[in-house]
Design a protein around this nucleic acid. Structure first.
Lengths: 188, 188
DNA sequence: CTCCTTTATTAACAAATGTGAATGCGCATG
DNA sequence: CATGCGCATTCACATTTGTTAATAAAGGAG
């Protein structure tokens, strides 16, 4: 199978042979078919996944029963519901596969254990979280200051692959608009 | 002067007399008049402030010269431009006082030094950042799934003090709408 | 292959929000 | 006191986005 995890970590710091071995051994390889859940709304998020192949979607169900798309996760992305993981509160959203997906999964408990064995890893993970945090702030600013058409243009430029791999009504929800509006925007 | 900092930190963990002393000594008390800058767009964010009294505003200038309000910070809030602080990139926004403000300020360098002397503090700060991160994710969701009127209602419920202390055209910008639209919403 | 479900598109209309301009109010300043 | 400025409000109208419904296209199951 693929191993994107170690190269991903090596972007942030060097790792010895022994460290990479200990890291890989601490993760469990898990496969998800489309519509399999990594986490269900109302559960506790106690695991963290690194996606080797495939595509996950974060969403919550509206009162009308629609799926409100909060985020996507693909190869080289991490997946967890951070709020629930950190605070121990129930997750306000679900995470499910929308493509056949293979991920390396570790429990939060074991991750913290692993930090004791590979101290560097904690620093690396902090840097990764920082990066995700900064992306989230940018996304907030996009919603605040850009109109739908501009948000779509930005997404086309930054993550064109997602547009190919995800049904448009999910993309629309992710952009915060109705599917018909996205159709309208795309016509131009 | 006030000392909100130590009680703020004590929400997260206990601190000895000696630790609180070392912490307070590492911060410098700085006063800001309205329109004084804590950070200017394009500069490097190298400091972190804890606000004891007053009110700061994060904003960036649009091409048309308006102030686009990204965030506010008041008593008991931390202030810094995290992206610039962490990555060393130029700050995409300014932070200025909009009320007379007193803050405890520490350079990022000194903060990291302080972590060596008071190791607990690093854990505390990490928890604070986690909390801010989670709030930011919620704010993104609010923009994505709520309409302007609902966002205003939520703000009225959660931070009513801000509505009293901040001119409405800044509130409007913070909500991502035109001042006239906010007027319209408030009429109900 | 055909049928059926799901997804995407289109159109017409409704609702929300933006824009430009006018008005009024409060407050600071000369 | 008078003036001017900044802010909030209001109105009319433009633009954007949502909603409902109909249709078309695509893909899967039998």
């Amino acid at each position: 199978m693929t191993n994107l995890l170690i190269p991903h970590l090596l972007q942030y710091d060097t790792l010895t042979e022994s460290e990479t071995t200990r890291i890989l051994q601490s993760f469990e390889v898990v496969s998800f078919d489309p519509n399999d859940y990594f986490l269900k709304e109302g559960e506790l998020s106690q695991k963290v996944a690194f996606i080797e192949t495939g595509l996950l979607m974060y969403y919550k169900s509206s009162e009308e029963g629609e799926e409100l798309v909060c985020d996507f996760g693909m190869e080289n992305d991490w997946a967890t519901q951070y709020q629930s993981l950190i605070s121990g509160a129930k997750s306000p959203m679900s995470i499910k596969a929308i493509e056949p997906t293979v991920a390396r999964v570790i429990s939060f408990t074991n991750l913290n254990q692993l930090y004791l064995t590979v101290p560097k890893l904690e620093q690396i993970v902090r840097q990764i979280i920082d990066k995700i945090f900064i992306q989230m702030m940018k996304r907030t600013g996009d919603f605040q200051f850009l109109k739908a058409e501009e948000r779509y243009a930005k997404m086309s430029a930054e993550t064109p692959a997602l547009l190919q791999r995800v049904p448009q009504y999910y993309i629309a929800s992710y952009l915060g608009i109705a599917p018909q509006s996205l159709s309208r925007i795309r016509k131009k």
